[in-house]
Design a protein around this nucleic acid. Structure first.
Lengths: 144, 144
DNA sequence: GTTTATGCAAATTCTTTGCAATACT
DNA sequence: AGTATTGCAAAGAATTTGCATAAAC
C-alpha cells in the first residue's frame, strides 16, 4: 500500500471523508517530526485557507485522529494519534510526553516516553492527558 | 499574624513590592479554591483594570509566587505556588495534578496529587510541569 | 438537486503594550 | 525630582464563525 492510500485509510477508519484538502493537512502533520500549530500548518500549506485547516483539525480532533497539545506557547499544537481506532480511551498509551523549551520555543515530542497517568478520586473519567515539561533543551543549554 | 500581613509577607519573600492592588490580586487567587484566569480575576476585582491584573500576574509568575496552568480551556489560569521560596526547582513538589472537565469547563486543582515527573534524556533541564487530565467530572457525570 | 467542503472576510476572544496620569520614596 | 505603578485605550495574536461559491454525491 502506498503512502497516499495509507493516509486515506487512516481517515476512513475515523469516519472522516478523505478529501484532497484533508489529506494534505493530515499528511503535513503525519510527516512532521514535531507537533504543529495552526500557523505552522498555514505556512506549510500555502494553497489551503487557514479556516479550512482549522476546520479539518477540529474534525480530526473530534474523531480522535489527532490530539491537541497545550504547551504553553500560546497556540495549540496538533499531532497524529498513534492508534487506529477512534474511541477516546486514555489507556491506549497514545499520549506521550512533550517538552517545551522556553528559550527557543520549540516543542519536542518525546514519543518514547508515554505520559504518566495518576489515580484520581472516584467519579473522574479521564479521556485525555496534557503532559508538558518546560525548561531548557539540550541545544539551548549548549549555547550558554 | 493576620491574613493581610501574611499575604504581604508572601509577596515580600518573592521580592515583590506589596502594593494595595497587588495584594487584592493575590488575595483573590489565594482565597479561590480553583485556579483563575485573567477574566475570572477581572470579574472578581471590578475596581482593578485588566492590564494591571495582567501585569501583576506576570510579575507574580516571574517571581514564582504563582504558576500558570494551561488546561486547554483557551485561557491560561493562575494559582499560588505552595512554597515560600522563589527559585524554580521542580522538585519542590509545588505542581499538582489538574483536571479539566470538558463538559462544564471547570478546572479542578487536585492539590493532594502531585504531578508526576518522568525521566528525560540527558541534557533536558526541567523547570516546570504542566499536567492536566481532561474528561468528565463527577458532577457532570451524575447529570447524564 | 441536495448535501458537504472550501475560501474569503470578518468577528471574537485572549493577551500584550504605549502612554499619560497618578502615587510612592 | 525621580522612579514605579496604574488605568485607559488600543494593538497583536490566536481562534472561530457567517456566508457565498464550488465541489461531491
Amino acid at each position: 500500500m502506498n503512502e497516499h492510500n495509507e493516509l486515506e485509510e487512516r481517515l476512513l477508519l475515523h469516519d472522516i471523508k478523505p478529501t484532497a484538502t484533508r489529506l494534505l493537512v493530515f499528511k503535513a502533520l503525519y510527516e512532521s517530526e514535531d507537533a504543529m500549530s495552526l500557523n505552522d500548518l498555514e505556512d506549510a500549506l500555502v494553497t489551503v485557507d487557514k479556516s479550512t485547516i482549522f476546520r479539518s483539525l477540529s474534525l480530526f480532533s473530534q474523531q480522535h485522529l489527532v490530539h491537541e497539545i497545550d504547551d504553553g506557547s500560546g497556540s495549540v499544537k496538533y499531532e497524529p494519534c498513534c492508534h487506529d481506532h477512534n474511541h477516546e480511551d486514555v489507556s491506549d498509551n497514545d499520549q506521550h510526553t512533550h517538552f517545551f523549551c522556553t528559550e527557543c520555543q520549540h516543542t519536542y515530542c518525546l514519543k518514547g516516553i508515554s505520559a504518566p497517568v495518576v489515580e484520581l478520586p472516584n467519579g473522574f473519567e479521564v479521556k485525555g492527558i496534557n503532559y508538558v515539561l518546560k525548561g531548557i533543551c539540550p541545544s539551548c543549554k549548549a549555547k550558554k
